[in-house]
């Protein structure tokens, strides 16, 4: 009889569940959001209204991302202008002064 290793089971399970979240479609995400509210009727109308209420959650994650990417030591990215401003030298072979370089690249496409 083999020994139960819950930590190994959990990691396998979390990985599989993580993949499920990654592969969830936008419709499934919206349905899930609709189901989150107290109004669980699940009609299309409620589904979209729940989505607007969700903007607070989305803003929270976006702010976190801005904080993480905009920190000193990390490049500041302007997606619309398609450039990255280098603040410090972590990814550089030589050290420019803070904010003294702007490297242009093609605007990136949205990931889906």
């Amino acid at each position: 009889m083999s020994r139960w290793e819950p930590h190994a089971d959990l990691m396998r399970l979390l990985e599989a569940l993580g993949n499920e979240i990654v592969t969830a479609t936008e419709l499934e995400v919206r349905q899930a959001c609709a189901e989150c509210g107290s109004t669980m009727a699940g009609t299309a109308k409620l589904m979209w209204s729940a989505w607007s209420e969700l903007q607070e959650e989305v803003r929270e994650v976006r702010e976190l991302i801005d904080a993480a990417i905009g920190e000193p030591g990390e490049p500041e990215v302007d997606v619309e202008k398609g450039h990255i401003e280098l603040r410090t030298s972590r990814h550089l072979q030589s050290v420019p002064e803070r904010g003294s370089r702007t490297c242009h690249k093609q605007p990136c496409h949205k990931q889906h």
């Binding site: 919206r30 959001c33 903007q55 990215v77 496409h109």
Partner: peptide, 10 residues
């Protein structure tokens, strides 16, 4: 930076 709202939820 380009992640959509649905992506951020995920």
């Amino acid at each position: 930076h380009s992640l959509s709202d649905a992506d951020l939820v995920r």
